[in-house]
Design a protein around this nucleic acid. Sequence first.
RNA 1: GCUCCGGUGGUGUAGCCCGGCCAAGCAUUAGGGGCUCUCAACCCCUCGACCCGGGUUCAAAUCCCGGCCGGAGCACCA
Length: 490
Amino acid sequence: MEKIAPELLERKKKEEKKELEDLPDVHGEVRMRLAPSPSGPMHLGQSRMAILNDEYVKRYGGKLFLRIEDTNPHNILPEAYDMIPEDLEWLGVKVHEIVIQTDRFEIYYDYARKLLEMGKAYITTVPADEWRKLKNEGKPTVDRELPVEEQLERWDKMLNGDYEEGEAVYVVKTDLNHPNPAIRDWAAFRIVKEVEHPRVGNKYIVYPLMNFSVAVDDHELGLTHVLRGKDHLNNTYRQEYMFDYFGWKKPVYIHYGWVTMKDTILKTSLIKEGIKKGEFTGWDDPRLGTLRALAKRGIQPEAIRKYWIEVGLKSVDIEFSWDNLYAYNREIVDPIAKRYFFVWNPKKIEIKGVERLEAKAPYHPSEDMGFREYKLEKPVRVFVVKEEWDSLKDGQIIRLKDLCNVEKKGDDGIYAGNDVSIIKRGAKIIHWCPENSMAAEIRMPDGTLMNGVAEPLVEESIGKVVQFERFGFCKIYREAGKIVGYFTHR
RNA sequence: GCUCCGGUGGUGUAGCCCGGCCAAGCAUUAGGGGCUCUCAACCCCUCGACCCGGGUUCAAAUCCCGGCCGGAGCACCA
């Protein structure tokens, strides 16, 4: 090989596979986390952080935490506690330990008290908008510098439920003159009384806000590296104050860019509403960008993984490319998908001039998967795509793939032998389905349906991704006696 | 408005830190051809990019300055 065609080897070398770049500051093993809130199942956008964290933990060894951030009782879908781990498992992400924030209130309270004692936090009873206004002007509220004893007293009152919702807020001090107003004093605990938490009920009335619980947990879990979207950049700065106050060692923070997904419905609140209204069939409706929808459509988790590895951790904003994802998926699915015929807008034609026909079509054009065979008896009738048949000229001879040649004559076909060489001479090849085919409905990612018939043998591929020849890849299901295909991609 | 972050073909990415081998690589998409009993796969070819302007230098996608453009955050959400 080397002697005959060294240039081929050269080429091989150039097509190195994409690899994630190394993480900075790795000393031995890493400890990382995924931190979704349980508002719904995972979607494509969230799979990025899951995959990347997983890749690094697998590369360096260490531990990956799934930390469910459920400290906002207003935005929780109880089923999500189970759905998220399921989605991760489907993705092939290895989670070593699950941590749920509503199990950890005592830890947060503990640190909250310490911070008050250190004079690094205060409890304000000033209304939110006023507090915010003062902050933007770089001015303290009247209660910011109240003595520690009084702050602790207020804290106890908060915990005891002596304040109503919105009457008191625990704030972490930073720097009122910080040039970025977003970083100045930030709210860390709020009172929630009017809503019951789906998981812990009304056991607690003081809820930590994200920046506080995240900082505490990132430290408590001993994280070495934190990957997050750059929309969290200011939160990182806020949280760093906590690390500085307590003298904790900070993890390495890496902020990756924003991903926009055109024509993809990701927003959980919208999906939830749509499901309720009946606009979507469920969390796996093929129009959605949830992982469950993609799974249903036959997208392989390995394709998603490969996609995000290719994209990497850059802080540039990017546009998601379905084409690229489909290309990766096709690479995986093409060699294993069995081939079948699906005829949309079917028209039944009779092939005259033969007693019987035998079809022998390979399951795969290049892989050795055997054949699907059909025997067609006397009135030999098949389904073909209506527009296709109608567009043929009378007298035109075409090839019915893996069956025979026919000459069109109105709504009939005249048997024209079985000489494959007519293809070489330019005969059109069309596909067909036997008369005993099954009704089939294909559901497209844009929500449209295609109705037709699928050859009987597809039944053996229920639950699998197949390729309907001259149509595209689909994942096959059965619903109410009919074949239902979820379109994967061409 | 303020504070950050970033700008390589339609899309994604490599190169940028440590200037030259970059008249910019790879993948995908699009167009064309080949092969094939699929409009798939495979093979070949083609189109297509360093945001702009200065500066430093023998030499800049790579370093410096300015501008322009895009994005994020500025919640008692995460």
